[in-house]
């Protein structure tokens, strides 16, 4: 079996194969619903309605998509330069930590100053968290997949220590949670009375900025060149090590904004269940988007919709929410295969 490159894929291939992938995901999800003893059509309908069937559902989906856009962008930026950042989860918590440190009364500034300061501090913290593994990679050749992955656990245990110790909310009835942010440190809602907060707006702005950086600046050009062909980049005089470090700073900063936005926009305090794996799901989001920053927004909303829809379906139909995880995994695998099939023709010989 061999793969042949298709120079110009036809429209039929570009639409057909992803459509088949989506259909396979639906079929697989239906089969699971059937196994769980539910009517598959009803289950899928409930998921769809739960994700986008009402204004409330839609806004819930967008809220859930917000941290995924940030972590998806973080992964997309890093992977584009072949920096395998698996540690968006740790960077997210670093950002959340900074939001709590500055936002619980330590600074008595007006929101116009306080919120940017929190966001800036969060980005800085996230960037520093990824800088370590990036330096180990460029200086000593240590595999960043291992270091960034392990850093997730270090960070989670560190946060846990803080929440049991110095950051523990005195009014928290003994729960491991931080004090609540002061009202001025909360991200306002985009429209009064609707649950969607400005974190979503910030995420959209971040996506556009990342797109501009990648396509219009010398830094973006360098990051793509290093990712595509490191040897040629070195030959052309691109400072490969420095580019990887800059990429790490940008990627870590973006992931940290997810933590800031969750704390300041949604939760109001820091707990150990702040992120149900947004850092890891960001990898799926970025891969589904083919590392395109605008695509990240779309795929984050899709992924969030599946989760939110499955939650709501689970309450109504009694099918476990794990179906969401399985459907997303199926979607990722089939979509990756479909995208490969739009670019390559399989020869059986």
């Amino acid at each position: 079996m061999r793969l042949e490159v298709i120079a110009r894929p036809s429209l039929w291939r570009m639409i057909g194969f992803p459509a088949i992938a989506l259909a396979l995901t639906v079929v697989f999800g239906s089969a699971l619903a059937l196994l769980a003893g539910a009517n598959p059509f009803q289950t899928l309908g409930l998921i769809l309605r739960g994700a986008a069937g009402s204004q409330f559902a839609l806004l819930e989906t967008l809220n859930r998509a917000t941290p995924l856009i940030f972590t998806g962008l973080a992964v997309a930026v890093a992977f584009r330069a072949k920096l395998w950042n698996i540690g968006a989860e740790a960077q997210l918590y670093a950002g959340a930590l900074m939001a709590v440190l500055l936002g619980t009364g330590a600074l008595g500034w007006s929101p116009a100053l306080l919120l940017p300061a929190m966001a800036g501090a969060a980005m800085l913290a996230g960037a520093l968290v990824l800088l370590g593994p990036a330096l180990l990679k460029t200086r000593l050749g240590v595999d960043e997949v291992v270091t960034t992955l392990l850093f997730n656990f270090i960070m989670l245990l560190f946060i846990s220590m803080l929440l049991e110790g110095p950051l523990k909310d005195p009014m928290g009835m003994g729960w491991p949670q931080s004090s609540r942010l002061i009202p001025d440190a909360r991200l306002p809602r985009i429209v009064d009375g609707l649950r969607l907060h400005w974190g979503f707006g910030l995420a959209l702005i971040a996506a556009v900025l990342v797109w501009v950086i990648q396509s219009r600046t010398t830094l973006g050009y360098e990051m793509r060149a290093v990712g595509q062909n490191r040897q040629a980049a070195e030959f052309a005089g691109i400072p490969v090590g420095r580019v990887i470090l800059k990429t790490a700073l940008l990627s870590g900063g973006l992931a940290a904004l997810a933590g800031f936005s969750e704390v300041a926009g949604l939760r109001g305090n820091l707990t150990l269940d702040l992120s149900p794996g947004f850092g890891y799901t960001g990898i799926i989001v970025a891969m589904l988007a083919l590392l395109n920053p605008i695509g990240v927004v779309i795929s984050a909303i899709f992924v969030a919709g599946v989760f939110v829809g499955a939650d709501s379906m689970s309450r109504a139909a009694g099918v476990p929410t794990y179906i969401a995880n399985i459907m997303l995994a199926t979607a990722l695998l089939t979509m990756v295969l479909a995208i490969a099939l739009t670019r390559f023709r399989v020869r059986w010989d």
Binding site: T218, R224, A225, Q228, N229, Q231, A233, F235, A236
Partner: peptide
């Protein structure tokens, strides 16, 4: 192929590889 050009870059992107700054 390996050092002179970046395969997935366009001709334009490859043309400025040494002078993009």
């Amino acid at each position: 192929h390996k050092t002179g050009t970046i395969a997935d870059f366009t001709l334009t992107e490859n043309a400025i590889l040494e002078r993009y700054r």
